[in-house]
């Protein structure tokens, strides 16, 4: 049987180990897990290389959803309402955003695909979400996306929703400077 002090030290080591597990191990583990499984509707974050292999005779409906995260000063929408696509074929579409702030701003778009099972078949070859986007004051930008939906897409999926959320890369505290007086006031009362 260990003495009191050595047992206490071992238990302390266990506690430190669990802190390391929570702080250092879990976050990367989580990302890898989501990447492998496509959970959370995460799609590829860098350009994929895929060859075209259209699955003629199959048609899937693609819908777009755009959102702007709280306090981010942008107007953001899809260039079209949606499209009919053939799995395995290459498509281009555009999204449009306008910087509403009176100074330059940097945005980061974060994509997500629903249903989640479709996420890993949705391959982006080019996307404005791969990098941050810089906007001059009041600038309007047309932003392209080029993608292929893999023809291995499970047969029961007939509709895919691609959503983008626009985030301000500045922290909430700095970004609130861009808000109008009223909204800033509102934000304060949330506290």
């Amino acid at each position: 049987m260990p003495g009191a002090n050595s047992l206490a030290l071992r238990l302390l080591a266990m506690a430190l180990g669990m802190f390391g597990f929570g702080f250092l191990v879990l976050p990367p583990l989580y990302s890898v897990f989501c990447e492998i499984t496509g959970l959370g509707g995460k799609t590829n974050q860098t350009a994929a290389v895929v060859a075209e292999a259209p699955d003629q005779g199959r048609s899937v409906k693609l819908e777009f959803v755009t959102a702007v995260n709280a306090y981010a000063p942008w107007e953001f929408h899809a260039g079209s309402d949606g499209m009919e696509i053939t799995p395995g074929a290459l498509y281009d579409t555009t999204f449009v955003a306008k910087n509403l702030a009176n100074r330059s701003k940097i945005a980061q778009a974060v994509p997500s695909v629903a249903p989640q099972q479709a996420a890993k078949y949705f391959k982006k070859l080019e996307c404005f979400c791969f990098t941050t986007q810089e906007f001059a004051a009041g600038e309007v930008k047309q932003m392209p996306v080029r993608f292929i939906v893999d023809s291995d897409l499970p047969a029961h999926i007939d509709t895919i929703t691609l959503s983008y959320t626009f985030f301000d890369t500045e922290r909430v505290s700095d970004a609130s400077a861009d808000l109008s007086h009223e909204t800033a006031h509102e934000r304060h009362s949330i506290h």
Partner: peptide, 19 residues
Amino acid sequence: LIAVMPVLAGAVTMLLTDQ
């Protein structure tokens, strides 16, 4: 307690560094 309190500490530490 020894297994999970440190995990909570890790989670709130991440909140702190995020902020």
